[in-house]
Design a protein around this nucleic acid. Sequence first.
DNA 1: ATGTTTGTTCCGAT
DNA 2: CATCGGAACAAACA
Length: 274
Amino acid sequence: MPELPEVHTIASDLKKNIEGCSIDGVEIENGYKVNPNNKDFSQKLVGSRIDKVGRVSKNIVIKLNSGDFLTFHLAMTGRLLLRDTKSPKDTHQKIQIKLSNKEKNLALRFCDARMFGKVGVWNGQEIKGLKEKYGPDMIMQEILPGDFMERLKSKNTTIKHALLEQTIVAGLGNIYATDALWMAKIHPETKTRELDIKRSTDLLKSAKEILTEGILHRGATLPDEAYVDIFGQPGSHQKHFRIYGKAYCPRCKTKVEYKKINGRGTYFCPSCQK
DNA sequence: ATGTTTGTTCCGAT
DNA sequence: CATCGGAACAAACA
């Protein structure tokens, strides 16, 4: 489930809590598979130290002192939890990584109900390749409106679909893209080829604004609690959704329309999104 | 029982 | 060969 604000929250909390820790052990649930394989994964992790925690698009990327990188992609239902080593196993727990420094012993746990998530260890070259496959990050990189427009126009599809394409711009998911289009008063089925500079500028501004707001609210947690932070706490951005999940447009009170656009549930106001 | 779901990748059609 | 749309991945929930 996590989109940029949720992944950002996890990465920044992890940064404060596990940088400098040594990796003492790795436990992988029976049948669960990681990259490149479970044996090499464990061997490369155990005995190394965590240098830096960061994010590449929606991947959590952890740099080790060995020069290798540990990555997590949470997909729809992945969770990263920082627990006491003695705390009981979490639901859908797939991996436990034991960490320690002078003051504490911790367990970093990866859990995933639907198992669309991905976990692995990679070398520097592979991480370079990972970074290269994504478009500019909506928060960490400066994107000029003209560039944003050209990138969107490079794909001949609906604006909603193009926004979700991480190779075009990185960070938006279904919820934030839906709200960004509402903020910019753009119909989600608008063809990318019909974009002009004014609408592209509005959309870029809206997307950055909604993602920034999401970060301030520590992400959005839906009723199923697929996303919680590393301490198991929900975010609060769900209280600030603009049109996602709404029945009436907050701007003009028109009844909200819901339809699948390129396979994803999309809410929009038929009156003010043109 | 059926239709949903926050993401991404792959396959078939064009 | 390149591009696009949709299915598929798997599980929980209403």
